[in-house]
Design a protein around this nucleic acid. Structure first.
Lengths: 237, 237
DNA sequence: GCAAAAGTGTTATTGTTACACCCATGG
DNA sequence: CCATGGGTGTAACAATAACACTTTTGC
């Protein structure tokens, strides 16, 4: 570190892995790039810091609002990882701070005032390379999905996929789709209702469906699940 | 995003939370700052990218080598989180990509060719505010310690605290000190030797001590622990 | 032999899994 | 009254925790 050494200045991008469960599939919000590099390719939504003084976490929240039109509601946003390889972007040195967002099934795919070409794409199509992404976004998405899968076990993250009021079956559906495995409805019911402060009964019940009405719940205050909801395959067991 | 908008350029720092177990305590490697801001204060070791083209992960490995003189050996290095508040550094806009490193008890505290004023400080002294750190390093350390604690449960991280050859008691010692709770030696022994590919017997045995010689092990190939080693307090249970 | 630490066996308890069974509604 | 999902009971099984007990060394 000599005294005449210039500290390198780099651009900071914020990229979002926004996941939801839609049409019985785990889907990710992607945009079609309009400009080079990778023009026409699908990419994670994101952008550069809006100003020299914008907080990075704040920038992530701003981008999410721009893309989805959502804000406080049922919304989970956490930092995922930072990607700092020197050649990620062919134009200039850019490091990307990636965030993982979980949202409920939105009424309109590309709502919000921005009207960019954002759309939901099944995660399986990307991970199996039937669709490929710009930059290192494939890797970022893959990291984000794995993070979401493991968070379902130990945290109350699954409720972020659900609307404000939901049934135990709705919640089980999230687990089954994100993990890609079926769970016993009886045991699942007992487990999740047994975790303290995970689910709060609202008193309401569903009325439609073919069978017995299901009790409605809203998310509780617990963020860590005491007896975790473990997946059989995957991590271990 | 108007076309005449200038993308903000920021400096990228790499900060290290280097942990070890020394003198029966969890300790962190800290440096005494020689220049403003926070001159004379303790801080996490770290620095800016060495060049416009240096990979961020590479920079973390380089800083670790500079500070400890270590390189490949028993060494764990993983990205922790990125800290991007606009006022972290009063001089200019700096975002810090923090890394967590775990090293075995080193023969010499401030070895290596750098000869900076690096030294080991018990983590408890910092977390209880008997010693305070520069910038937001207190928060970063706290996040790093929590990450290390939770990684002990599900990953083979604990072996990174140990020398190349170690006993089950050495390993248990790591868990007890990092978690701050005592564990039953008998059950611990059975558990860790029962996890597939966690520990590999070398055939050697200790010779000193007061009691029966202990078998020596080296780290196995497992990085995820199938039946996890759970702590009683803390997370849950 | 005695102290000290390593390591094994055994049992009570707890958590999980599998599945039989009852409940409440719409048609 | 039957199909359909919601929800409870229960027994077999697996993991864990507590602790008695045996092993192997140094002195």
């Amino acid at each position: 570190m000599s005294s005449d050494w210039e500290i390198p200045a780099v651009a900071v991008a914020v990229d979002l892995v926004v996941l939801t469960v839609r049409s019985a599939r785990l889907q990710v919000l992607l945009v079609e790039r309009g400009i080079e590099p990778y023009a026409g390719k699908l990419a994670l939504p994101g952008g550069f810091l809006a100003s020299e003084r914008e907080d990075v976490d704040t920038a992530a929240g701003r981008e999410l609002a721009e893309e989805t039109g959502l804000r406080p509601e049922n919304l989970h946003l956490e930092q995922l990882r930072t990607y700092g390889a020197p050649n990620r972007d062919p134009r200039r040195r850019v490091i990307a701070v990636a965030y993982l967002a979980i949202v409920p099934d939105l009424p309109e795919p590309t709502a919000g005032g921005d009207a960019r070409s954002a759309r939901w794409v099944p995660v399986s199509q990307v991970l199996t390379r039937r669709a490929t992404l710009a930059f290192d976004h494939q890797r970022i998405l893959s990291d984000g999905v794995e993070r979401a899968r493991s968070r379902l076990e130990y945290s109350a993250l699954a409720t972020a996929f659900c609307p404000p009021q939901f049934t135990v079956a709705d919640l089980r559906n999230v687990y089954e789709i994100v993990w890609g495995e079926t769970l016993d409805p009886r045991n699942f019911h007992r487990k999740v209702t047994g975790v303290a402060d995970f689910l709060v009964p609202t008193g309401g019940h569903t009325t439609k469906h073919g069978g017995r009405p299901a009790a409605l719940y809203r998310r509780g205050t617990a963020d860590v699940l005491h007896p975790p909801i473990l997946r059989s395959t995957g991590g271990w067991r």
